[in-house]
Design a protein around this nucleic acid. Structure first.
Lengths: 163, 163
DNA sequence: CTTTATTGATTGTGAATGACAACTTTATGC
DNA sequence: GCATAAAGTTGTCATTCACAATCAATAAAG
């Protein structure tokens, strides 16, 4: 733990207190998300599939799981099928992913990465790692593991509740 | 700390690993945000100013700081002035907030809560507290303080970086 | 004073998101 | 075979958010 972990100062922004939100998980999670997402978008702005958390996750999944189906991606993203379908559309348009019909189920699609998509996936991994190192440098080294464990547990429990 | 705090299981969703995102703060923050926001929206769906994190924050601020200016709210929300102006528009339309011209600066506005807005603010406080208690019940009691401290520190450092 | 720059706020516009309903095609269960 | 469920697509709609341009008022500079 970092040395100053025990102090719990009132959060004040531009001289203002934020009422009940000061003690609300939701406030901090939402605020962090908006800045983190904006930062990630900036870092990926030069890529053909920039903008939007769904696309990068989908691309990595296709790269890791040849033949994966859109509905599986939808499950990971917690999105509905239309939203996921449009994400796949973009990946196909960008030449990163190829659609085939799943051999065992003619309703379903099997998605495959292209050479372009594979290169893109590698770039994305680098960008994500860079963001973790650079953007989150404000999290003291000593706190990282613990913060990550808590986030993971929160995430897992939230998903359990969700499904 | 809760007793199982030391295990660090690989995150697997629907049988799939999530590549580099498995170790990325950004993934968990984004995922948590989308579910928390959806949950909060549901809880507020019956209110006249439902939907959107900006409105509830703005209303609470006006309730707490009579005469506050839109630009101050924009600073807290980390939004630009047009976005904030439209949030105030909605609050005024809903009869929750009243605009006046700031006496000391004729360009600026001074915002004041109405009786309706004050009641609404109280309802919102209850909803936020209820969500903290009910939605985040998956965070073990023993972890709450620490998780909150870490979120606050992350938030403060992020804002420092932002400004 | 008068000119210039800055600040507070509004309007317009465009891109993107995400959710929901309706529909087509294929599988599955009885 | 027939009804039901599942996979994907299309259409639509409401929101959101950011950027540019504009207007009015203040502050600063000469």
């Amino acid at each position: 733990m970092a040395d100053d972990s025990e102090d719990d100062p009132e959060i004040i922004i531009g001289g203002l207190q934020i009422d009940v939100l000061e003690g609300a998980f939701s406030w901090y999670i939402r605020s962090l998300d908006s800045v983190v997402s904006a930062d990630l978008d900036r870092r990926m702005a030069h890529l053909s599939i920039a903008q939007g958390k769904g696309r990068i996750t989908a691309l990595l999944l296709v790269d890791d799981y040849p033949g994966i189906r859109p509905s599986q991606i939808a499950d990971v993203l917690m999105r509905d099928r239309p939203a996921t379908g449009r994400i796949v559309d973009r990946l196909v348009q960008a030449g990163a992913v190829r659609r085939e019909t799943a051999p065992d189920d003619l309703r379903a699609q099997a998605l495959f990465i292209t050479p372009t998509g594979h290169r893109l996936a590698d770039e994305i991994r680098d960008i994500v790692r860079a963001q973790e190192a650079e953007f989150f440098d404000f999290i003291p080294e000593a706190d990282r593991d613990q913060f990550m464990r808590m986030l993971k547990r929160a995430y897992l429990n939230m998903r359990k509740k969700w499904d």
